[in-house]
Design a binder for these strands. Structure first.
Length: 589
RNA sequence: GCACCCAUAGCUCAGCUGGAUAGAGCGUUGCCCUCCGAAGGCAAAGGUCAGAGGUUCAAAUCCUCUUGGGUGCGCCA
């Protein structure tokens, strides 16, 4: 479905074209000055500059043409050439009516929708998720929801980190503790027990132990390196352990991701493309792209035009092992060959600090002809910093585990719920359910509303705050609309035709009108905060409307029916939008 | 050393391809529940947009330099 802004943009574009000027100057958007106008078009000044003409004259002519538009009440020129537009109450009423009845709540499918893979760049096997993993999970999941809604065919892949040195650390550390395990008998080739020899807690203990030792002791590190190489080469006992480690970890990860409403189509990992690596390496060799250097096999991806140093892609290291350059490339190969239809683009939702890595991989993929380089995108995000302004460290003590963060958010939600005046008949189960929804809304929204690319300071109060620009505020607004609508229905009052008349009603409909642009903007730029801003503005506009005018309590039947319909449209768009953010709205709270 | 990113209200942040008096939230100070849910609404105070030049009718936005932060730079993913 279109929008008033879109309709007016088309009309203004046509007006510019009729004057022999480019249609792109006709962009119409919400006015910065609500007291002056509903919409504005600033294109006359840019057009005047391009054509060497007088901006006010152009603006006046455009305005004159726009006055004939059915939705336009007035079109006036201000200042150096701003065109201020007022739309009629009737146009707003029609628009609100349409949003209410639209399956997309007023938004449209993207014109360039396509087959898309979203790679979450992996939580690691054996390392518990910490606060830093929140961003990849929440941003990636929101993008997959937004893209699907806008018409993309999305396949999401958690893409576990299960192929690197950490596996060597685990294998060797486990050997030190339990050398008698059958997995370490090189002569034995299976079958191996179905029951894992370790628990998730064991893994959480073994990895840091080994990692710390390896950092202090080069020989210890070398053992882990060799173990990885052996595992990658296919040693049966090590492979069996790898399988156990993955299974045990995935179970824990599913709980963490599940809490946050994050889901994946594929639970693949680096180790899944093991079998493709020899073929991939051979292809690089045949293409004449690989060369030996210091005992390793590398691919040069540097270009003449590079301003910065571009290290080569490390295909096979000097121990014969492969790292995440190679597995990422093999994964691209795998996706292109096995996913039907073949992906048209792949998005990697991974920490901004890995930008160089992805640039290297993308170049190598393009050089080999796996997929065009520009179809691979690194959706980087800033770090989550501590109060000292420095990132939470992964391997040092004192990192906040995601599970602990969730528990704290839950506790805070429970506390707030007991302070609020909940319905008296709310039982324990419902109360718990609401607390969980509030906690998830708080965590997801506070992360999403930050611009994706910048770092932000992790502040527990902010994460769990329930006032102001927060997830719970949005939830509360949605719950309140539902409550009003429910009450009206109980009294036999049904929504009717929207007839916008009051200022707060006009402002509310103008806000509703911006949903589609916010959705497509968030998708195109891969910036969820654009959608957050819109929904927050919608909740605010509704709250103002709600405070200023009676809805279900309105005594005039026609006005009441109109406002109920308007409220229902808000509910529809708010719930639709919040669902895209992974926030679910309870019936009451 | 080289490269990239960032600097906006006391704090945390928006500000779209340059456009009108730079916006929110928190905090501060006032109001507003005999009326649909006050986790709310209304209002006020608070800014030389790090600094200095430049381009432009118009710069937080584009260019140059300076200062102050952050990140990355071949065998850890």
């Amino acid at each position: 479905m279109g929008s008033l802004a879109g309709e007016l943009t088309a009309a203004a574009g046509a007006a510019f074209e009729a004057m022999g000027l480019a249609a792109r100057f006709g962009e119409v958007r919400r006015s910065d000055k609500p007291e002056l106008a509903d919409f504005q078009c600033n294109g006359a000044m840019a057009a005047a500059k391009a054509a060497g003409r007088n901006p006010r004259e152009i603006a006046a002519e455009i305005a004159a043409r726009l006055k004939d538009h059915a939705s336009v009440l007035s079109a006036e020129v201000a200042g150096p050439g701003f065109i201020n537009l007022r739309v009629s109450d009737a146009a707003l009423s029609t628009r609100a009516q349409a949003v209410r009845g639209d399956t997309m709540a007023g938004a449209e499918k993207a014109a360039d929708a396509g087959v898309t893979v979203i790679d979450f760049g992996g939580a690691n096997v054996a390392k518990p998720m910490h606060v830093g993993h929140l961003r990849s999970a929440v941003i990636g999941d929101t993008l997959q929801r937004i893209c699907r809604f806008a018409g993309d065919q999305v396949t999401s892949d958690v893409h576990l980190g299960d192929w690197g040195l950490q596996m060597g650390h685990l294998v060797t550390e486990l050997y030190d503790e339990q050398p008698g395990l059958i997995y370490f008998d090189a002569a034995y080739t299976g079958p191996y027990p179905a029951e894992p020899p370790v628990t998730i807690d064991d893994l959480g203990r073994l990895y840091p132990q080994a990692s710390n030792k390896a950092k202090a002791d080069e020989a210890r590190n070398e053992r882990s390196q060799r173990a990885v190489a052996e595992m990658q080469a296919g040693r049966p006992g090590y492979r069996a352990l790898l399988r156990h480690f993955i299974d045990v970890s995935v179970e824990a990860l599913k709980a963490d991701y599940g809490f946050l409403n994050v889901s994946f189509d594929l639970w693949k990992g680096e180790s899944d493309v093991d079998g493709l690596i020899p073929g991939l390496v051979a292809r690089f060799k045949h293409a004449g792209l690989a060369e030996e250097s210091d005992g390793a096999l590398i691919v040069h991806v540097a270009r003449e035009s590079d301003k910065k140093e571009m290290p080569p892609v490390m295909l096979v290291n000097s121990r014969g092992g492969t790292g995440y350059h190679t597995t990422d490339l093999a994964t691209i190969l795998d996706r292109m060959d096995t996913l039907k239809p073949a992906p048209e683009r792949m998005l990697y939702v991974v920490d901004q600090r890995q930008a160089l890595h992805f640039e290297q991989v993308f170049r190598a993929a393009g050089m080999l002809g796996l997929i065009a380089e520009d179809r691979l995108e690194h959706i980087g995000f800033g770090t989550v910093n501590g109060p000292d302004g420095k990132p939470f460290k992964t391997r040092e003590g004192g990192v906040l585990r995601l599970a602990d963060l969730q528990a704290m958010a839950m506790e805070e939600a429970e506390k707030k719920l007991s302070a609020a005046n909940l319905p008296a008949d709310m039982g324990k189960a419902e109360r718990f359910d609401v607390a969980k929804k509030v906690a998830v809304a708080a965590l997801r929204f506070s992360d999403l509303m930050n611009t994706r690319t910048t770092n932000y300071v992790f502040d527990l109060d902010r994460f769990t705050s329930f006032e102001g620009k927060t997830g719970p505020y949005l939830m509360y607004a949605a719950v309140r609309v539902k409550s009003v609508l429910r009450k009206a229905a109980e009294n036999g009052h049904a929504p009717g035709n929207v007839r916008v008349t009051e200022d707060t009603e006009r402002a509310l409909v103008l806000q509703l009108d911006g949903f589609g642009a916010a959705l497509l903007g968030a998708r195109e730029k891969r910036m969820p905060h654009i959608l957050c801003e819109h929904l927050y503005g919608l909740a605010q506009a509704f709250s103002s409307f709600y405070a200023a005018l009676p809805i279900a309590a309105e005594t005039d039947a026609e006005k009441r029916a109109s406002r109920l319909a308007l409220a229902d449209g808000v509910r529809h768009q708010l719930e639709t939008g919040l669902d895209l953010l992974g926030i679910t709205v309870p019936e009451r709270m």
